[in-house]
Design a protein around this nucleic acid. Structure first.
Length: 557
RNA sequence: UGGGCCGUCGCCAAGCGGUUAAGGCACCGGGUUUUGAUCCCGGCAUUCGGAGGUUCGAAUCCUCCCGGCCCAGCCA
């Protein structure tokens, strides 16, 4: 059945991987079973590119009545840690996915070693005592074949003895490696006797000091997939050249299950970077405050920014799965959050950059209790009350002495609607010594509460809060971290980093109902965007809001 | 001129020999609206990187050409 016209069914659109899986199911391959895996190395934080892979692997499993494992590819103990592992698990769960089983490549170290012994005994692998540099020289180049190592024809007995010695810690790091005996003249460099094991006398966060040798990715991944009974091993395009080796290992060892590796294009998103190296650089060189900085494309950063799991999943569905080197525009991601937040967020009034406004024809003590709908399209979300009083704040952007054409906010002598309240008219502008506007004096039309003004049209509506009945808040506004769509193309961050990616407003005023907002509560501040209560810095009585995304703006900036 | 892969609207992307070449984003109108939001309605590829060929019929098959991406870790 085609998935292409599935709108809100939650099913992703058709793609070439789903086509393959549907054919496999129809042909009863793997008894019609579908088992995928998401296989991160626990050496860093997950980002939006990983989300693409997560949504694919878990999504495909769910849609074909299958399962998905979470497998940590922990074969390089020098870079890996339990902290990274825990962070990855938290992110996958937050995204809304449940793995069938948590596995680790390190669970299979003994089996992997036993398989290696089999390869040695079959004459398909050998211990090479060349140095790393020698091996590199003998590997040849992209256009020239390699040459065979002088150690290539050691006897299986000698290889076995040396491999055991490597395992037992009899040799130092770098003295030997175990290599597959394939073809030093292959056009595919991965097939020129790839390294299977290297000596590393490093403590592993799970296996401790039990092992002195650690298996390489190419050897480990296919066997881990096979051991788990994975049916479809989905990975990114740069592993296409590794597939012959994946298949060689499984065929040579005649394993019972031979999963199919299928490659798809990794995500590229405009105005950000997604390579681990670049992300680390942003953190270490302190261009951002950490992995969870709201400007980061990490899952934890997006979370702190106010993105929802549903929005990220929707994004992954919208961008599709192909083998094209696609660049996705930020607008797609932003549309996904707006869609979700528009439907789910309660509305509030907040003045980001306040100017005081005095309604001079109102008594000092007079207040007005007004009912506001929490959502214009969802009455079931209820209402809240807000006090209107003589002194209020409006946003600096909503007043102009020299308005551009079609400006429909407050101007000297002009009228504007206060959201949910009266139409007011600007009678007087008060400035400080520098000519900066510090206060506006206005009159109000008492007949305009809940009614259109008589005999004239007032187009503009602006938001406001009562001076006395609002609370102070910190508001953080964001722009892209980079000034270029493809910042990774530049060698030097300084050239492409956006110096204005963060703007902190410490004197914002928000309506009283927001004083003690829960961390991660999300709201639409009418006319200014969607905001989330910062889950790190917000305190009761002194809330901190991060702007997730602005409202769509057909006016202009 | 070593091996592998990719090219359908500004950005994604369906399409799998016979369709008026889906859909989303973006953009451009118009309507509703006390958020310049939302919502609604309309517009937006005679053409599928190019040239040949096969076929009654080609984005889909073949050939060549052009453009782009990946690979020489004892990383994953």
């Amino acid at each position: 059945m085609s998935k292409s016209e599935s709108g809100d069914t939650g099913t992703a659109p058709s793609n070439f991987i789903r086509t393959i899986i549907e054919k496999d199911i129809a042909a009863d391959k793997h008894q019609g079973r579908v088992l995928t895996r998401f296989p991160p190395e626990p050496n860093g934080y997950l980002h939006i590119g990983h989300a693409k892979s997560i949504c694919l692997n878990f999504g495909v499993a769910a849609d074909y009545n299958g399962l998905c494992n979470l497998r940590f590819d922990d074969t390089n103990p020098e870079k890996e840690s339990v902290e990274y592992m825990d962070a990855i698990k938290a992110d996958v769960e937050w995204l809304g996915f449940k793995w069938a089983e948590q596995r680790h490549a390190s669970d299979y170290f003994q089996q992997l070693y036993d398989y290696a012994v089999q390869l040695v005994q079959a004459g398909k692998a050998y211990v090479d005592s060349s140095s790393a540099e020698e091996m590199r020289e003998m590997r040849g180049s992209l256009t020239e074949p390699g040459v065979e190592s002088p150690y290539r024809n050691r006897s299986p007995e000698e290889n076995l003895r040396l491999l055991e010695g490597m395992k037992n810690g009899d040799f130092e790091e770098g003295e030997h490696v175990l290599r597959a005996k394939i073809d030093m003249a292959s056009g595919n460099i991965n097939m020129r006797d790839p390294t299977l094991y290297r000596i590393r006398k490093t403590h592993h966060f799970r296996t401790g000091d039990a092992w002195n040798i650690y298996p390489m990715y190419d050897y480990t991944h296919c066997l881990s997939d096979s051991i788990e009974g994975i049916t479809h091993s989905l990975c990114t395009l740069e592993f296409e050249d590794h597939r012959p080796l994946y298949d060689w290992v499984l065929d040579t060892l005649q394993t019972p299950c031979h999963p199919q590796q299928i490659e798809f294009a990794r995500l590229s998103l405009e105005y950000t970077v997604l390579s681990k190296r670049k992300l680390i650089q942003l953190v270490e060189q302190q261009f951002v405050s950490g992995w969870d900085d709201p400007r980061m494309p990490t899952i934890t950063g997006l979370r702190r920014r106010g993105y929802t799991p549903a929005a990220i999943r929707d994004f992954c569905d919208r961008i599709g799965i192909t083998k094209n080197d696609a660049w996705i525009e930020m607008a797609v991601l932003e549309t996904c959050v707006r869609d979700d937040l528009n439907a789910t967020s309660e509305r509030r009034l907040a003045v980001l950059d306040p100017i005081k406004l005095v309604v001079t024809d109102m008594a000092e003590s007079e207040t007005l209790n007004l009912d506001f709908s929490n959502h214009p399209q969802r009455p079931e979300l209820g209402t809240r009350q807000m006090l209107f009083s003589r002194e209020i704040y409006i946003d600096r952007d909503d007043f102009s002495e020299n308005p551009p054409p079609k400006y429909q906010r407050l101007i000297p002598g002009g009228e504007v609607r206060l959201r949910g309240c009266y139409v007011i008219k600007c009678e007087k502008v008060i400035k400080d010594d520098q000519g900066k506007v510090i206060e506006l004096h206005c009159s109000h039309d008492p007949a305009t509460l809940g009614k259109k003004p008589e005999g004239r049209k007032v187009k503009g509506v602006i938001h406001w809060v009562s001076a006395e009945h609002s609370v102070e808040a910190e508001v953080r506004l964001y722009e892209p971290l980079f000034t270029q769509p493809n910042p990774a193309a530049s060698e030097n961050f300084e050239e492409v980093i956006n110096p204005d990616s963060l703007q902190v407003l410490v004197n914002s005023r928000v309506e009283a109902s927001l004083a003690n907002s829960e961390p991660e509560a999300r709201y639409q501040f009418e006319r200014t965007g969607y905001f989330v209560v910062d889950r790190v810095d917000s305190k009761p009585g002194r809330p901190v809001f991060n702007r997730t995304v602005t409202l769509r703006d057909t006016w202009s900036k």
